[in-house]
């Protein structure tokens, strides 16, 4: 593993990526989940991660949300280190205080929504803005209502999550994440826990975000059609490595790696 001194304190130049994974390694004990991962995501880019179960897709997102620590390399967000902080001219592992500041530009939606069950939809969306961003309740309410309207959930704003369908809960969860005004949004299989007939209401919201907002997004999904429609780039993960990455047109039409071909035909057969 290379010394931290070989990593830059910040990224400079004409085209600073919004996210950079630089030689990132993740292990659980002896088990190597990701080895030497390098991935850049440009500002405003929509990147989708696909791959077989256990290939490390969720782990990539969780590392970026700082839900997992990394065992090697550095992750940068908006040019600044996320997992590390500069100290006396070199990078050292970030402490809790630095992490808190650094992760503020990242938002995440989860497979199982993870809404706060004791709060209404509106309160879920106001919690972060009031507690973390220090907005007044009135400002936070305005912002939350605007976002709930955007995801089509304004009528249900006073309902608790237990009273909402999966698709409705996921749309509230998206609004809750957006209320923090992140620069990067992470979606981990946000439609996997949903009934087929409500998947569309969630994918439509994400589609809207792609076309109308300048968010950088990293998404994991098993829905190949959706990935093809909205992604700028698709990364196929296999065994903790990026086996192949390309535009959706190229990757789906002319997959170069044998493993990509196998995976895509297996997925097609299952559809």
């Amino acid at each position: 593993m290379e010394a931290l001194s070989s990593f830059p304190l910040e990224l400079t130049g004409p085209e600073v990526p919004m996210v950079r994974f630089m030689n990132v390694r993740k292990t659980y004990g002896d088990f190597v989940v990701l080895d030497n991962l390098n991935l850049d995501i440009a500002p405003g880019e929509m990147v989708t991660v696909i791959g077989p179960s256990g290939s490390g897709k969720t782990t990539v997102l969780r590392m970026l949300m700082t839900l997992e620590t990394i065992n090697g390399g550095v992750i940068y967000v908006d040019g600044k280190p996320l997992t590390h902080m500069p100290k006396n001219g070199v990078l050292v592992p970030a402490d809790a205080k630095y992490l808190r500041k650094a992760r503020s530009s990242i938002g995440m939606c989860f497979q199982h929504f993870n809404l706060f069950p004791h709060m209404t939809a509106l309160e879920n969306c106001m919690e972060g803005p009031v507690q973390v961003l220090g907005l007044s309740r009135r400002e936070a309410k305005e912002r939350a209502e605007e976002l709930l309207s955007m995801v089509g959930m304004i009528e249900k704003k006073d309902q608790h999550p237990a009273r909402l369908s999966g698709g409705q809960q996921q749309r509230v969860a998206i609004a809750r994440a957006l209320a923090m005004r992140p620069k990067v949004m992470l979606f981990d299989e946000v439609t996997s826990a949903l009934d087929p007939e409500v998947i569309g209401e969630v994918t439509n919201v994400i589609q809207d975000l792609v076309t109308k907002h300048n968010l950088t997004m990293l998404m994991v999904t098993h829905q190949m059609g959706f990935a093809r429609d909205i992604s700028d780039r698709i990364c196929f993960f296999y065994g903790g490595k990026i086996e192949e990455q390309d535009t959706p047109e190229e990757l789906f039409a002319n997959p170069k790696s044998k493993r990509t071909q196998q995976f895509l035909s297996a997925v097609k057969a299952a559809d």
Binding site: M65, R103, G107, F110, V132
Partner: peptide, 15 residues
């Protein structure tokens, strides 16, 4: 997942 959602909206441990 509740703890993770709190991290994702950046609440402090006390919050």
């Amino acid at each position: 997942g509740q703890w993770e959602a709190c991290t994702a909206i950046n609440l402090t441990t006390a919050q």
